[in-house]
Design a protein around this nucleic acid. Structure first.
Lengths: 200, 200
DNA sequence: TCGCATCTTTGCGCGACTCGCAAATTTGGG
DNA sequence: CCCAAATTTGCGAGTCGCGCAAAGATGCGA
């Protein structure tokens, strides 16, 4: 990767990160594209060369991280059982970052994230990113199980079910009554769907 | 429901339907909010009293239909096994309309729908509607299984898994290589997740 | 039946956003 | 060191979302 591409990637990440930071601090509607661009030191117009909306910039971090789950799954030993490999892949790339790494994690930040997550435009973009990443996961599952993502339901179902588990964990973590650590929720959710979701 | 509310609902449906019709015919970007409003005979401004974007108007029909699945589930006999009840509920309210009822179903229409389904803005709104409807389903599942949607993962997982099955069926129907009737795909998908998704 | 309180529609206007285009600037290979 | 290619930037046009207040429609109670 040449200097050119590296710089592009850096700008992309910086813009995405600035979008998240400002949105969490001020609220979605109090951040102008101009502000995000200024924070990174590029022009308003350049922002739109990278992302076609504020929401997309914010969701980009989620997207990048989610896609890495698929990569991680591919690098798992072939003889590892499917659901075990998936669980390990998810935790390797998702749980860490979701928790408190690379992020203040103070009271105000959490509250800001919750507010942000409720904004309609962000929800749409987040789900789009989530779904797009899920397709990458489906492709990896197809590879591992010898199925065909263009003809078989199976890889899409597995990826969809994993995605549903992740979303359910996030949802309960953000909106639920009983405060539980995110990692625990996620492990529980993956365990249940992996076991075939027996009636409780 | 008084005349007032009925009229509102009619306008809402008319706007949503007009949005779909025009978008399928002309393509997402060639339809202005003004056009949709004109088709129904209201002002541009009134459109925005009902929907906050073109995409939302289009997704509203999906949303309404999907929410009815939850209602249908509630009306199923209590002694019906969960997954059987869910499958019946889904088919009662979803499969019919998805197929070819109430809709031209000609070649041009299908092509238009496929194009529309690929548009970024529509995808986001569609997923938002899908997810929102899923929460209604989770509530119904919680009711039926005696779990708590605010504390337990289970109802969200069931709803999420059902949603994933529906999305997988739609996805393969729209983008897959092997042409199969939608109803068959959907039945297959629900059957697999209900059985706990065994390795193929 | 009628009048009034309430809800809905509409026109106006502002600020913001997306994107095409072309000029200016930066980058990397030869 | 220079040039071709990629990237950034400014500008402008066309939409869009929404707050506000006036105008119109509706339904309930007297």
């Amino acid at each position: 990767m040449g200097l050119r591409e590296r710089k592009k990637e850096e700008t992309r990440i910086a813009l995405s990160w600035a979008a998240i930071k400002l949105t969490v601090e001020r609220g979605f509607d109090n951040v102008k594209v101009e502000d995000i661009a200024a924070e990174v030191g590029v022009s308003h117009r350049t922002f739109n060369n990278y992302f076609s909306s504020k929401g997309e910039a914010i969701a980009a971090r989620h997207f990048d991280r989610a896609v890495q789950i698929a990569d991680e799954l591919r690098s798992r030993p072939d003889d590892e059982p499917l659901w075990e490999a998936i669980t390990n892949a998810v935790f390797a790339r998702f749980a860490l970052g979701m928790q408190e790494a690379e992020r203040p994690a103070d009271e105000r930040w959490i509250a800001g994230v919750k507010l942000m997550s409720q904004h309609p435009e962000h929800q749409g973009e987040f789900l789009k990113a989530h779904t797009a990443a899920q397709e990458a996961l489906a492709a990896a599952v197809a590879e591992r199980t010898g199925t065909d993502a263009d003809r078989d339901l199976y890889p899409h179902l597995v990826a969809g079910v994993v995605g549903a588990a992740i979303l359910a964990a996030i949802h309960l973590w953000l909106h639920g009554d009983a405060p539980a650590p995110f990692e625990e929720l996620l492990r529980d959710a993956l365990g249940q769907v992996a076991a075939g979701l027996p009636t409780p």
